[in-house]
Write a protein that binds this DNA or RNA. Sequence first.
DNA 1: CGACACTTTGAAGACGATCAACGCCGGTGG
DNA 2: CCACCGGCGTTGATCGTCTTCAAAGTGTCG
Lengths: 251, 251
Amino acid sequence: MTILPSILRGLPLFAGIADPEKDALLAQGRLRSFPRGQMLFAQGDKADRFFLVASGVVQLFRTTPEGHAKTIDLLHAGQMIGEGEIMDSCRHYRTNASAAEDVSVLEFPARWLKDTAQAHTPFALNLLGAMSERAHMAEVEAEHQASMSAAQLVACFLQRLCVLTDGDPKRFSLPYSKTLIASRLGMELETFSRTLTKLREHGIQVSGSDVSIADFARIEAYVCGSCSIAEDCHTRDAMAHKTCAKHSKPA
Amino acid sequence: MTILPSILRGLPLFAGIADPEKDALLAQGRLRSFPRGQMLFAQGDKADRFFLVASGVVQLFRTTPEGHAKTIDLLHAGQMIGEGEIMDSCRHYRTNASAAEDVSVLEFPARWLKDTAQAHTPFALNLLGAMSERAHMAEVEAEHQASMSAAQLVACFLQRLCVLTDGDPKRFSLPYSKTLIASRLGMELETFSRTLTKLREHGIQVSGSDVSIADFARIEAYVCGSCSIAEDCHTRDAMAHKTCAKHSKPA
DNA sequence: CGACACTTTGAAGACGATCAACGCCGGTGG
DNA sequence: CCACCGGCGTTGATCGTCTTCAAAGTGTCG
């Protein structure tokens, strides 16, 4: 029996399932490591595995025929990979997945997900909740990309980063390379770089990977104006609430 | 007992549920009509109802503080409204919903959805499938908006429209006003209008609401180049497959 | 020191949004 | 029957933003 990172046993996904049963379910997964840069799978591969991230960061991305790459998402410990492809019976992964840092994941056969949902109603409901939350995140994100300027996007990102990681606004660090962040925000590295310079006018200083934000309220004011879901995602209150929501479980 | 539009009884959402049970479930909904232009609900309203569209088209949209409106989706007969807000225990609707044409819907209390998912495992799995499919659509769409030019977007839209409605490429009609289509595609009406002119160079003629497409293959070639999920959504094969997928049910 | 990945900066260009004016059409009311 | 109006779509001119291409700067690690 493998020793599981405790984070996986506490996942909201398993809320409402008794511990012995939970352990039996988790035991069906295989703990695997991927060094930085290695692919977990590629777009178009047969979608036959489901993953739970145990540690590290996994980058989901797509590449156009023309060679442009876009980062879809960055997944941290506790997050799921592949549930979409499996649940809507799509045969192939729709993105590439690679390790943005050294990563360890718990890997399950695709059937495990369907079988578990079928066998445990609470699991199915938790999964439903997790998937709709993720869908909502994606929606918010699309909204942002469409309606905010590069500068607003970056400001919003930095503010969330600081609040959600509970960092000191006066001095915290970028967790990824600027290249990766730019890609995540859907802009070119050059644009991102220039934007950081401009944000000084709004009280955000970035040098190297050190960030300092002078005044949250000012950022909120700057960002919220052009967003149709401002209350949901830009205010400190909303973010605090979101964080809580992740810890509490659906009824 | 209301007479239900047959389309609702045949929904994949209810696949695997016996007819009497299905009727009992559907009977808990109330059939309502909304004349063109009327709101079903507004963003921020308490998310206490779930809808199935029986006929007509419902527009989901958001408005920024600055007054910009963006159409998120257009829902037709058989589609669900509100499942996201309900399943992730969000208390408020995240969009506005208004009738783009005269509409009739089956309205359920929010609890109905959770209760039904809890009571009927097949229903929960169907719901999971439907939600991940919709999430995937949204993802594809975000991808498109980000990576394709306005002209490609419009070409793609027209081609899909023609194929999915099984229309004659040589002569079919736009189902909505140009204003609504432009909003749906995330561009200004002016841009849309200009784009239609330019698309003549690619064999697409539009005058008034009459459309004619000279050659699908040419459009595919034009559109696919900049899309990272081309095989999933631009080729006729893929679209035909999608259509089938909607009729077949998840295992 | 030199190689290499990463980042910054500059200049040019493409694209879509915006503002403004106009054309078209259907309906209403005098 | 005609005049007026409002909704809808088209067209032109301009402007800001982001991408692209090119070059140089910074850092780390052998």
